[in-house]
Design a protein around this nucleic acid. Structure first.
Lengths: 222, 222
DNA sequence: GACGTATGAATGAATG
DNA sequence: CATTCATTCATACGTC
């Protein structure tokens, strides 16, 4: 959809300390802190190398103080950084969920072989069965099994479950209007979220810092 | 972790698992995942038709699992897909950007103070500097090059004497982030600290000056 | 081929 | 500590 005119290609690294002298007008989009390479290195070092995952407020302050040498940074940045890293790391590795394939969603559709833009397509779901049970997602839309991308159409329709109440299409900025069963205290629970980590990389002292172009860079192009 | 120079390869190379009959290539460039028509249909169906916008990790897994029939896909893809769709839609109907600029913001750049914050502590990661710990956290790792505050790679490995000084980017919450005795209280209690401290909320100085963007004007005004 | 747009991916910032 | 929001980066692609 609409994406805000993104401003790219600023400089090789980043720019936040900024205000140096007569440049880096500090884009307003720069409200968000971003660790400078050195800062990142230090943080990672602490986290991975030292296993500093639970820094105390004092330590956070100290770290922050030290990190200030490399750019503007506040305590909260450090705090959040650790929080996020921890959270993501944990939530990243946690696919230990029993794949209850039996009786879950059922993807039974495959029409509209045309473009896929807009919802104006024949999204006439609920053809074969509005389902409306409880349990899992139900992707039961109308349309017969048209073509299988690869022929494997696995019509594994079994029982449809649904629990998604009639949640509004647009939850506005208010809040999650729906009381979605997120906190369904199920055994095992252990939510596994996704975020960072699929990429990331080594932790420790080996940071893949690339010192690409030095002066008039722009060595690559499309 | 900036994704600036780390666009990784999510799945490792393979992108289409099965689809290879009539229409697979959505974005065959094995870089980032791209939903195959069937996948997209299903996802959209869930999102628009069912209003399924807040899938739980489990549901994501299920969806992903089923979507695999139509092509390579990972949990994170589903996760991101939903996240993005939600975000974009929200962003769409939220141009309520009040451009209120009332307020004489005074960016007092060029403050001075210099060594005010830079305690010239040796954070030399891997630098030659032994960084004599003064009872602080040991941030000694190993790092090749050094970076300038602005991120520019400055091979000053060994020592970097900078006095970047906080240098506020804009009149944001200039409260108790500096040498304030905020944590004078107990520490290590709970992680509930940090709440409302950096919440800014300028009582009315919602500076959103979005005019100093590339307007060919000396943006520094130091 | 540059440019604009659409969208996947990443992560900082919050909130509960 | 779990989950979500918001913003931005990066890139594929269509278009001029």
């Amino acid at each position: 959809m609409e994406q805000q005119t993104q401003q790219q290609i600023e400089d090789g690294g980043n720019n936040q300390a900024a205000g140096s002298s007569a440049n880096t007008p500090i884009r307003l989009t720069n409200n968000r802190w971003a660790p400078t390479p050195p800062q990142l290195r230090i943080l990672k070092g602490l986290y991975y190398d030292k296993g500093f995952k639970y820094p105390t407020p004092e330590q956070i302050q100290e770290i922050c103080l030290h990190l200030k040498q490399y750019g503007q940074i506040e305590d909260k940045n450090v705090f959040f950084w650790f929080q996020n890293l921890k959270a993501r790391e944990r939530q990243l590795m946690r696919p230990i969920r029993k794949v209850r394939v039996g009786g879950s969603l059922d993807l039974n559709f495959g029409s509209t072989s045309s473009t896929d833009d807009g919802r104006s397509i024949d999204l006439n779901f609920g053809s074969t069965g509005p389902t409306g049970d409880d349990g899992s997602i139900d992707l039961n839309f109308g349309s017969p099994v048209g073509y299988g991308v690869d022929g494997s159409i696995m019509e594994q329709r079994g029982e449809y479950h649904q629990e998604i109440e009639t949640l509004p299409l647009f939850p506005m900025h208010g809040e999650n209007v729906l009381g979605n069963p997120k906190t369904t205290s199920e055994e095992g629970s252990a939510y596994g979220w996704y975020s960072g980590g699929w990429d990331d990389n080594n932790g420790g002292s080996c940071i893949s810092l690339e010192l690409s172009l030095n002066s008039s860079g722009a060595a690559d192009m499309a």
